[in-house]
Design a binder for these strands. Sequence first.
DNA 1: GTTATGATTATTATCGTTAAAAGACAGTCG
DNA 2: CGACTGTCTTTTAACGATAATAATCATAAC
Lengths: 293, 293
Amino acid sequence: MKQNTLFKEAYNRALDAFGATDRLPSEPELAESLKVSRTTVRAVLHRMAEAGLIDWNQRSKRVLRLPVAADYFPEAETRSAAELVERGFMARVMDGRIGLSSPINEAELAREIGVGTTTVREFLIHFSRYGLIEKRRNSGWVMVGFTRAFALELADVREMFELRSALAFARLPKSSELWKKLAALEAEHRRMLENIDTEYRRFSELDERLHRLIHSAAENRFITEFYDVIAMVFHYHFQWNKKDEQRRNTVAVQEHLAYIAALQAGDPIETELTCRRHLRSARATLIASTPAD
Amino acid sequence: MKQNTLFKEAYNRALDAFGATDRLPSEPELAESLKVSRTTVRAVLHRMAEAGLIDWNQRSKRVLRLPVAADYFPEAETRSAAELVERGFMARVMDGRIGLSSPINEAELAREIGVGTTTVREFLIHFSRYGLIEKRRNSGWVMVGFTRAFALELADVREMFELRSALAFARLPKSSELWKKLAALEAEHRRMLENIDTEYRRFSELDERLHRLIHSAAENRFITEFYDVIAMVFHYHFQWNKKDEQRRNTVAVQEHLAYIAALQAGDPIETELTCRRHLRSARATLIASTPAD
DNA sequence: GTTATGATTATTATCGTTAAAAGACAGTCG
DNA sequence: CGACTGTCTTTTAACGATAATAATCATAAC
């Protein structure tokens, strides 16, 4: 049966929002801020009243006491079956329990993760869009990606898309919101470079934000969505290949800064040059950590 | 419950293969040729024996009589629930019952098509990879594609990919198998042009084969897979927009021939020119039939 | 008269179950 | 001895059922 994880998660977030105010807002307002339906909001309010946190009578929702740690639901109970499957699957990919050409067994995964087979199946169908796993009719799934060929093909498309996006970015009117975001990212890069010895592990997150920002200039859903594939592959790649990480990331931050400067100058030639240079090292890093075919 | 559609379909195909020979091959051989497991082959043989078609005793499978129409299972019973859903959904998109920003109701679709909700759900998850429908959390799906913006974004990526593939094609060594396939397609184009008045409806199929051939030169799974999206959109577009079809297709065949000639000449400049010209008209046709935003 | 509430209805997320189909294994036939 | 068969085990495909959640609608409060 479906677990009320959404309710529990919303309840926890609602507790976080118990601020200075001694009255809670209306149901529709709460629904809006918690991003859930009114039905769930009402369930949350009922529980708060039961727990003696508020005195709830129609429109009046008076705060009786502030929440303490014991009022929160354990975080584990706030994860839907679908999330459990995703985490469980990814963990298995990362630690190698699911490796290249491993067969993937729906029932076994479901049992281990503790969810129904349907949920696992739906996750795999969805995940197959990234091209890393494939299905054989009336038989199981196999991991096919993470080969060198896969990485090369991914890198090729990435370069095509990013170059186009970067040139579109350079052409943006100076009034665009994206320039402000770029400036903010530039500042973050500089801060990171100053403390690179301690900060270099945060690079992969910064990298994703910069590339997504640039891709957003293309205003093309196919390009934007393709970045999901890249992000996933790089995310897992970064988890694997820790060798030389600090040096690689330092170089990458510098490449980013040159790239950002070229964009800000609106110089297409320099943009193309710095973009290519950065993507070339990203490609090399990725390729180096894939098994040879 | 799962229906034995695979068995029925394999049985029908096995009947088709009842040739001159009076003995059927071994189980593993049958399994190989029918592309099913031995389990299914044995079910087929059991049924054939019951129907008096063969005398089956261990390795001996003697043909007693040739199959007649009544021996076949009705075609409707050979379609899996998943296929039913796909056809049912597509039919609804084409005849407009599911239109732009229509909400899509899993339970309702399932009831109408006569399958379980899970099957519909899995189809929708899979189909969502084409970017035409989107899901809202804990709520239904909506049709979002087939807008002008979607068409423009699709056309942009298509041009990027096809240009790259075409240039790769032009660079292929003359020994490549792909040149033979291209020559065969060229001949088909010429034949079609001669009888364009009667043949023009077959163009869309020819178009897909040519473009898939060209894309295959890129040897990139992301490019190849992207053509699935294009093919689907064009397929449905061709179903809708019958206006002016003969004239459009005549022009397109001529553009194809020029494009093919440029490829065969191995001339990159001319390839790019003819490729762009053809894609420009394809884009115009597509855009013209999408609703303005 | 607008916005909020309470009650009701519709729809999704997820599970457990079962027939179909695939796969494994030991024994048998040529 | 190697391929084939019969039997048994494992796994997928698909269904129906139910709690959670969203959506709707009439009424009440401001």
